[in-house]
């Protein structure tokens, strides 16, 4: 009996779609596939297994998926996906930074991400009191983390990383000051915010200066100066490619400083050379930031803007 039943069940395997039915269904499915293309090519970061593992561990994988995290990268405070950007994406990118140098660089980059968010909101007149408070608090936390990580690096790396962070803070402070001049809705809170950024910059500047002095009087200064020269020349090249119009004008400060530094190097004053190359690097970073502000936010930072001369509430 069972054999018969099983046999008949097997007969039922011959039941198929009709040829036309199958073709029609294929047409519908092909149209669906075309209408729903695969998610955009994901940033390199998304292909790391550790990213997926972290995601799963945080228990959100099944809910969010890759597409959402990728979309979250453009989120600003108050956007629905902002928590994904800061709590998940940034945490995961932190896992991928392996060396102490990479970790310090990522921590500094997080500070910059907050500054970019502030700029974008400020340029739209949306930097209100609540958002300002949230961003200030996040910047303080991120900057503290960056400081701690930078402090653990060897001396040359420390000098470089703190120089980079200082110039990042200064560059964005200048952009924010420029925005605050526009008399927009959030002009005064933008100015306040610039003051907060300035405070952070001063703290980092102090550390950077101290480290540079140590290098200046140290034994490895020649090697440090040569390495720094190569690094800053590469940096200037990269910025030149990306900054767009008026690149030479924006980079003139940096290129001049490199020439001065080379002269010092030739005359045996490697310590001085190192310090000049660091300064050149800071100028290049500011040029990058101002180039980005022009491209993304249509903000042209006045070349004569002197952030140290501007009074803020904290002064």
């Amino acid at each position: 009996m069972n054999d018969k039943f099983e046999q008949l069940m097997r007969e039922f395997r011959k039941v198929n779609l009709g040829t036309r039915e199958k073709e029609t269904m294929r047409t519908h499915i092909a149209a669906f596939v075309t209408a729903h293309p695969r998610a955009k090519r994901m940033p390199w970061i998304m292909h790391f297994t550790v990213w997926r593992t972290s995601f799963a561990a945080l228990g959100v994988f099944a809910v969010l998926g890759f597409g959402t995290s990728y979309a979250a990268e453009g989120a600003l405070p108050k956007d629905l996906l902002y928590p994904v950007k800061v709590s998940i994406n940034e945490k995961v990118r932190g896992f991928v930074a392996v060396s102490p140098r990479a970790q310090a660089a990522w921590a500094s980059r997080k500070v910059e991400r907050r500054l970019e968010e502030a700029e974008e909101l400020a340029s739209q007149g949306k930097l209100d009191a609540n958002v300002k408070m949230e961003l200030e608090s996040r910047i303080e936390d991120n900057a503290k983390e960056a400081d701690e990580l930078i402090a653990q690096l060897d001396i040359e790396a420390r000098a470089e990383a703190s120089s980079e962070l200082e110039s990042t803070l200064e560059g964005h402070e200048r952009v924010l000051l420029q925005i605050s001049k526009s008399d927009g809705e959030s002009a005064s809170s933008t100015l306040d915010f610039a003051g907060v950024v300035k405070k952070q910059k001063r703290a980092v500047k102090k550390e950077r200066s101290r480290t540079e002095q140590q290098i200046k009087s140290g034994v490895q200064k020649e090697k440090a100066a040569e390495m720094k020269l190569r690094a800053v020349e590469r940096q200037i090249e990269t910025v030149r490619e990306n900054v767009g119009e008026r690149a030479e004008e924006k980079l003139s400060g940096a290129t001049e400083l490199v020439s001065e530094g080379k002269a010092k190097l030739e005359s045996g004053e490697s310590g001085e050379a190192f310090i000049l190359f660091q300064k050149a690097g800071r100028e290049a970073t500011k040029a990058r930031i101002e180039g980005r502000a022009k491209k993304e936010l249509k903000i042209e930072v006045d070349i004569s803007l002197d952030s140290d001369a501007t009074t803020t509430i904290d002064d």
């Binding site: 039922f12 269904m25 519908h28 669906f32 998926g65």
Partner: peptide, 29 residues
């Protein structure tokens, strides 16, 4: 077909099986 006992419904369900699977893949699954 053998679980739903309705040919048209079975076709719709089969089609939806494929479209849902593609959506999952398209979303990065």
């Amino acid at each position: 077909y053998f679980r739903l006992s309705d040919r048209e419904l079975a076709q719709d369900t089969a089609q939806e099986t494929f479209t849902r699977t593609w959506k999952y893949i398209a979303d990065g699954g």
